[in-house]
């Protein structure tokens, strides 16, 4: 206990080191804010790109979200992680872009899916043990992007927030203005749809079905 010097920043937990940066940024230090953003810019950009499916929109989202975050930093109280707070701003910006670009009904996040039938499972086949031996990192990246792009926005967005950005169900519900139940049912559909698409690519060749490996 007596050896601990909480004022030495190297000894701080990452979370407190981050709060120090936030405090400095709140006092107007742009460099501190730049450092904060530098940690997350690639993830925010990727998320914006996955939601909007457009490079230009994604860059706009990244900029607007960061500027807004800087402007409203005082309202960040630190109950959530900075990244979650930034993500929330960026998701809202992304959804606005999406709505602006395609003003058709498919963009609605409030679409009533509860009346749709049960999630469908068609492909039942085990995967290759090592798809990374058959595909390069870049090919896998493209396969994953293509699969995500093919989902409807309501499924895509929930999956990205929950399984790619690793927000909790509650955080995802809050960011998207959905009920917890809606987030859960959309996530299940999204996961199963992606599973379906990836199985077509990654399934073990030569084996028709069912490696009952247990």
């Amino acid at each position: 206990m007596e050896n601990e010097h909480p004022e030495v920043s190297a000894a701080l937990e990452p979370a407190s080191a981050e709060m120090l940066l936030v405090e400095r940024a709140k006092r107007g230090e742009v460099a501190a804010f730049g450092e904060l953003i530098g940690k997350y810019e690639r993830r925010v950009y990727r998320m914006a790109r996955q939601i909007t499916q457009n490079d230009e929109d994604a860059e706009d989202v990244l900029q607007e979200a960061c500027l807004k975050a800087f402007e409203h930093l005082d309202s960040f109280q630190g109950q959530s992680k900075f990244y979650t707070w930034l993500t929330r701003i960026a998701v809202n910006e992304s959804l606005m872009k999406l709505r602006k670009r395609k003003s058709d009904r498919t963009v609605s996040l409030d679409e009533n899916i509860e009346t749709e039938e049960e999630p469908i499972v068609r492909e039942i086949a085990v995967w290759d043990d090592n798809p990374e031996l058959r595909y390069s990192q870049e090919e896998i990246r493209q396969i994953l992007d293509k699969a995500i792009d093919s989902l409807k926005p309501i499924f895509r967005t929930v999956f990205i927030l929950r399984d790619v950005e690793e927000l909790s169900t509650e955080e995802t519900a809050e960011v998207l203005g959905l009920s917890i139940a809606a987030v859960k049912s959309r996530l299940l559909r999204a996961r199963l749809q992606l599973r379906e698409k990836l199985t077509r690519v990654f399934k073990r060749k030569g084996e028709q079905i069912l490696g009952y490996a247990k």
């Binding site: 499972v121 086949a125 599973r195 069912l210 009952y212």
Partner: peptide, 26 residues
């Protein structure tokens, strides 16, 4: 139930493969 085992296993792998994909540098 082999079917459910495969569905469960491949769904888990689906999530893992997305989680494991790092965002490329800006």
């Amino acid at each position: 139930c082999p079917n459910c085992w495969v569905i469960c296993d491949t769904t888990r792998k689906t999530i893992q493969v997305y989680k494991g994909m790092e965002a490329q540098a800006l």
